[in-house]
Amino acid sequence: MAVIDSGAKVLNVTKLEYAWKKGDVPVLRIDALGLAKGERVFLRGPSGSGKSTLLAAIAGVVDIPTGSISVAGTDVGQLRGGARDRFRVNHIGLIFQMFNLIPWQSALENVLMPCRFSRRRRERAGADPKLSALRLLDELGLSDPALVSAPAMSLSVGQQQRVAAARALIGAPELILADEPTSALDEGAKASFLDLLKRECESVGSALLFVSHDRSLERGFDRVLEITEVNKAW
């Protein structure tokens, strides 16, 4: 089990309302949602239920007109432009459905990317972030130097997803947001990847908000939430 500090909330969403266009029917209406430090939450729901929009709002990718989203004690909605970008890299690790790696960079370079832009992540990655990246890749099953130095576009889907996970985990951000990260993987690889991800989150002390429509993945999480329980707009 993960060590959860229920007193310290890494994520605190209150009275959030969001519509893609002003005047449209809201796609998100969330009274309260919180994640404690180190907590691993599985958010389940069908496609189009607002799961990804919620993650985009938490990551500060979209502006929130109503309500507040606090990550590590900072209201993300109050941050603008570059400050929001810096905050994101300092405190949040993102794992996308389609990995979103820089295709021409090597696996190692992709993992080290947050450390390039964030001093906080660099410092938290240890004295030598490169060693930390190699360790993460190794623990995620990418120890072959040829794979580590290969351009991301030459890796298999499963390998790319592991690189994306290592990139999110390096420098131990307080919150990992994972949006259907296993949807491109086969059944065997899904379970293996999920185990690795949960173990690494526990190892670095990051809270994990994992969204998926796949109920078979919800085992081993500290909490499982149904989007309909959370999102009143649905």
């Binding site: 970008d85 890299v89 820089i102 390039r116 832009f117």
Partner: peptide
């Protein structure tokens, strides 16, 4: 576009 967005998602500011 995606490359720039990825860079921003890992901390590169618009100015960067």
């Amino acid at each position: 576009r995606r490359e720039f967005a990825i860079l921003r998602s890992v901390g590169a500011t618009p100015l960067r």
